[in-house]
Design a protein around this nucleic acid. Structure first.
Lengths: 190, 190
DNA sequence: AAGATAAGTGAATAAATATTCATTTTTAAT
DNA sequence: ATTAAAAATGAATATTTATTCACTTATCTT
């Protein structure tokens, strides 16, 4: 009895992500994906019931990955700003190294593919970010504005920074990274 | 001899925008658009040679509209921060009132629809924004970092703010607007 | 008012794409 | 080694969607 090949799901995901960057979410077909993944079209249906399901699964996987990486090595015992910067850097690095995921996620935001359940699941994963910012407000280091707004600035500026870096091929020197962090911190700090 | 109805292009654009918000760029069909615009599918082809051309035209129109509104009433004679806030408010208001356009533009970013020419044309329209930020640096009010980075923060935070406001149905009180502006200004100011 | 010209129509066609399925290949278990 | 069960295949099918076109309707010009 042959078993499903776990690496294959990874190949499929990688192929799909690569294609979304070059052709957009609207431009990818099951044929494209299978070809890029080096498998037959029919095989896609061994792993996913439909295109919708494939995309929802990829969306969920990206989201989980991203959140998991954000808090790697975060130590709440350290001073707030140190921990905050640690997470900020984690996010930045993750997005730069996984640019395709960021693009894919953005495209999914307004697509009919993602089901309400998938969205719901994704938004529950936001809790750690909320806590991080709440703590900053409690310690009176961050502006006493609602957490949503703080996150807005955090992710908004990060998103654009990543895009800018990626497309203009800017090299992110340590100095530039620090400058950027300072801008973000200045926006949030009280 | 019957003439083309100029309002019809507007109807088509409005219909397409509405659909992109609800179904994503990947989800819209020519049939959907024509139905939403209240015309026959064939009529779309009187005004646009193809779906691609329709989308490129819409993209260009949105971009022009948006830029045109940004600098309405901007008076370079006023103190820098006053003018800057004026433009910032213009952008915010425009995006909130034309949320669909913002969504559409974002979706287009990584789509195969938009041709290099259309992109090129759009990016040329960025000049006024660049000038605005250059001036701020010249007057030593803004951080002496590269203009691209300043714009990154400006538009990044704005984008997310607009999304957050729209989706969470937050009412933007004058206070909240000012808080948000302050965050942005704090990020940019030297 | 008549004629001419182009817009408007929507069913028909063409093209693209998702999905299925009969068949082959692989591999785990015996 | 044989068998059985499931994966893998890709051509065939079903579905969706862009585009065309023969025809109708509107309106500008004279």
């Amino acid at each position: 009895m042959k078993r499903k090949d776990d690496r294959k799901v990874g190949q499929i995901f990688q192929a799909a992500l690569k294609l979304v960057v070059s052709k957009g979410l609207s431009g990818i077909t099951m044929g494209d994906i299978s070809k890029a993944a080096g498998i037959a079209t029919g095989t896609l249906y061994v792993y996913f019931k439909s295109k919708d399901e494939l995309i929802n699964a990829l969306f969920a996987a990206c989201r989980e990955n991203s959140v998991a990486h954000s808090f790697k090595g975060y130590d709440p015992a350290q001073p707030y700003k140190v921990g905050f910067k640690h997470v900020w850097l984690n996010i930045l690095r993750y997005r730069l190294h996984n640019f395709e995921e960021a693009v894919f996620m953005e495209q999914c935001y307004h697509s009919p593919f993602i089901t309400p359940e998938t969205r719901e699941k994704a938004s529950r994963l936001a809790a750690p970010y909320n806590e991080l910012l709440e703590r900053g407000k409690k310690e009176q280091l961050l502006k006493p504005v609602d957490t949503g707004l703080l996150i807005t600035f955090l992710v908004g500026s990060m998103n654009e920074l990543v895009k800018q870096t990626h497309y203009h091929g800017t090299t992110l020197t340590r100095t530039r990274i620090n400058t950027t962090f300072d801008m973000c911190w200045d926006a949030l700090k009280s």
